[in-house]
Simulated scan of single mutants.
Amino acid sequence: MSSLKIERDTVTETVKNAVTDHAVNKGGFVGSAAAAVAEAAHGQLPGTSGKHPISAVVGTALTGGRKNAGTKGYLAAYLQQLEDHPLRTKMLTAGTLAGSQELLASWLAKDRNKHGNYFTSRVPKMAAYGALVSAPLGHFLIWVLQKIFSGRTSLRAKILQILVSNLIIAPIQNTVYLVAMALIAGAKTFHQVKATVRVGFWRVMRVSWITSPICLAFAQKFLPENTWVPFFNLVSFIIGTYINTVTKKKRLAALRKKHFGDSRDSRAPGGSSVVGGPRPGGVGPEDYPPLGPNPPY
């Protein structure tokens, strides 16, 4: 076992040195990035241990660059809050991201309320959902997942962890998400909530099954466990913003066609433009979950 460990460490060191030499010779942005990762992998970047070189380099870039490496920057302060107050920090993070996602998607899709504002009633509702529902649920489920696989680092264990995440945890999270979206959209009966879940479940699951294994494998390899939930929230923010924006645009196009007879003609009677303006009659994507078609309420 000893000789095997020495041989493995020698191979690892050789690879690191090769990456460093290649980066120095190549130069440019790619070369500089590779050199920084190699330096962090050696533990030579101030404030880093060498255990997570890529996240160390990203963290250094986010907190002011090499000149501030090892100092208490924004990312370091955030990670400290995650360690000291994990649930509270995750709730604030998820609430901010959920509200920002809705606001950003509305702006990108030019989706305004009847008063002409992008800050629709969905924004605070989504923020509340992120902080009070999504974050506590994600915190608990990820804690259970990490508890089950604590100390198990074999390839088989990592694959099992991904399977459990996708076949058990993801369906729970997505079902709760769709129920919350139905309620935010105005569902008032069990039938309406059930219709939303039935229509949207497999659409959401397909997205999860594509992105979740990649994200979880990345987290297993490069990120400390206490950063997993915020990382997943960030990925969900990017994907959710895209899907929400596309859905809003399609919904607005359908509304224009319904109210004015032609999706290509964006002018209301009297010549007032509705492209990027208030919704016709004050209704539209705000009444409708961002994933999946509108259920027959």
Rank of each mutant, 00 (worst) to 15 (best):
G59K: 01
Y78I: 04
H52G: 01
L141H: 01
A109I: 02
D84A: 15
R122T: 04
R156G: 11
W107M: 15
A128Y: 13
F140W: 14
R122Q: 05
L97W: 09
K147Q: 13
L75T: 05
P53T: 07
A94W: 06
G138P: 11
G116F: 00
R122V: 03
A128Q: 10
S106V: 11
S106F: 03
Q161E: 10
V57F: 03
S106D: 14
F149Q: 00
G99H: 03
L137W: 12
N113A: 07
G65R: 07
W143K: 12
Y129H: 10
I142M: 10
H85E: 13
A128H: 06
K67C: 04
A135V: 09
V133G: 12
N117P: 07
V123D: 08
G50W: 00
A76Y: 12
V133M: 10
G50R: 02
G65N: 09
K51P: 10
K67L: 06
A109P: 01
T153V: 08
T153P: 01
V133I: 13
H85D: 08
H52P: 02
Y74G: 15
A69D: 05
G99I: 01
G151R: 01
K51I: 13
A61P: 08
Y129V: 00
H139I: 05
I159V: 13
Y78T: 03
T89E: 09
S100Q: 12
W143C: 11
P86C: 06
L160P: 05
L141W: 06
L108C: 10
V57M: 04
A135I: 08
Y78L: 09
T60H: 12
V144L: 14
L79D: 15
A69P: 03
A105C: 01
E83V: 13
L79A: 15
N113K: 02
K72T: 14
R66Q: 08
L108E: 05
R66C: 06
H52R: 07
A61Q: 05
Y129W: 02
K158R: 05
L79T: 13
I148G: 02
P86Y: 00
K110R: 14
R122M: 07
T63G: 13
V133W: 09
P124A: 11
K114V: 10
G73M: 12
F149I: 02
R88V: 15
F119A: 13
L103E: 00
N68R: 07
G64M: 01
L97E: 08
G130W: 12
R112D: 11
Y78K: 09
G50M: 01
A94I: 10
V123R: 05
T60W: 05
A128S: 11
Q80E: 15
V133H: 03
V58H: 06
L132K: 07
S134Q: 15
A127L: 02
L137V: 11
R152I: 02
R112T: 14
Y74P: 13
G99S: 01
D111R: 10
H115E: 15
T120V: 04
T60P: 08
K147T: 13
I159W: 10
G59V: 06
I159E: 08
S150Y: 14
Y129R: 00
W107V: 15
F149G: 02
K114T: 10
A69I: 02
G50I: 02
H52Y: 07
L141N: 12
A105T: 02
G50K: 01
Q146R: 09
G99V: 00
Y118Q: 10
Q161T: 06
L108Y: 02
T60Y: 07
T93K: 04
N117L: 14
